[in-house]
């Protein structure tokens, strides 16, 4: 973990109107690490992620590979950061393969044909997510779990060194939650710097190399799951009484009742 961070942010402040949404966040993302950002609703997780992705203006310092995010062109930024927004939105009933190929958008010129690299990246993303079996189906006809995997495949096809995923497992059944988290972990262990927002503490504890906790605009904890997820912190941040168990697999929070 001594390598230079892919993404290095400090003193990040985001205001929407008069409201202070992100209040001085400091965060670094390293290659090979899956970081899960958790926190209660309205803590500012999505806003922080959008700021890190360069989609909304923010005060403070955000560096990508040692260069300021704001100094990158929109295209340079797109090649370095893949962003998977909430909700897995697909507006047109395009075939799955064409949707995944959109991940290659930052690599193509306006009128250029797909290269071998593009085709290879799309194929790899389809295979990794197990979506190649329905690659020709219109994306709007898929189930929630299938759509989530297509959305992730699209982000993976970017082959960007940084992957930011906003609630990639939301509204998925347990099996698909595990499938998606495994894919994110694999993307990290293949050398990506991955940040995912989640709500399931057990899932975060199981897969994250690192957990960052956000509460009311501030990052209040950052470290290994075992160090960060404590009964006291779950009580103070989430307002939930919990007990922590720990075994060979890792720490497991068991949530008992709202406080």
């Amino acid at each position: 973990m001594t390598a230079k961070p892919k993404l290095d942010a400090a003193g990040v402040v985001v205001r929407l109107g008069d409201a202070l949404i992100v209040d001085g966040a400091a965060l670094d993302l390293r290659a090979g690490e899956l970081t899960v950002l958790i926190g209660p609703n309205g803590a500012g997780k999505t806003t922080l992620m959008r700021a890190l992705a360069g989609l909304i203006p923010a005060e403070g310092r955000i560096d990508i590979d040692g260069r300021s995010l704001s100094a990158l062109t929109i295209r340079e930024r797109a090649r370095r950061i893949a962003y998977l927004p909430q909700g897995h939105v697909f507006h047109w009933p395009m075939p799955v393969a064409d949707v995944v190929a959109l991940g290659r958008y930052p690599h193509a010129d306006a009128f250029s044909m797909p290269t071998d690299d593009d085709r290879h990246a799309v194929k790899k993303a389809l295979a990794a997510t197990g979506t190649e079996t329905f690659a020709n189906r219109p994306v709007t006809t898929l189930s929630g779990g299938e759509r989530a995997r297509v959305a992730l495949a699209r982000a993976l096809a970017c082959e960007a060194p940084i992957l930011l995923a906003d609630e990639p497992t939301v509204s998925l059944d347990p099996r698909h939650q595990l499938v998606v988290m495994e894919l994110l972990a694999r993307a990290a262990h293949d050398g990506g710097a991955v940040l995912a927002i989640g709500h399931d503490l057990a899932l975060a504890a199981r897969f994250a190399d690192r957990i960052v906790i956000m509460d009311r605009g501030r990052l209040v904890a950052d470290g290994k799951p075992r160090d960060v997820l404590t009964a006291e912190r779950i009580a103070s941040v989430f307002g939930v009484e919990a007990v922590m168990t720990d075994d060979a697999i890792g720490p497991h929070p068991i949530l008992l009742r709202p406080l």
């Binding site: 797109a78 998977l84 927004p85 909700g87 939105v89 047109w92 959109l102 958008y105 930052p106 306006a110």
Partner: peptide, 23 residues
Amino acid sequence: ALNVQAFRALTLGEDAAASLGVD
């Protein structure tokens, strides 16, 4: 015509399209 490719990226919504490099 200059924006035709952007329409394709916009099928993912404005945030995702912006992250792909669409202004």
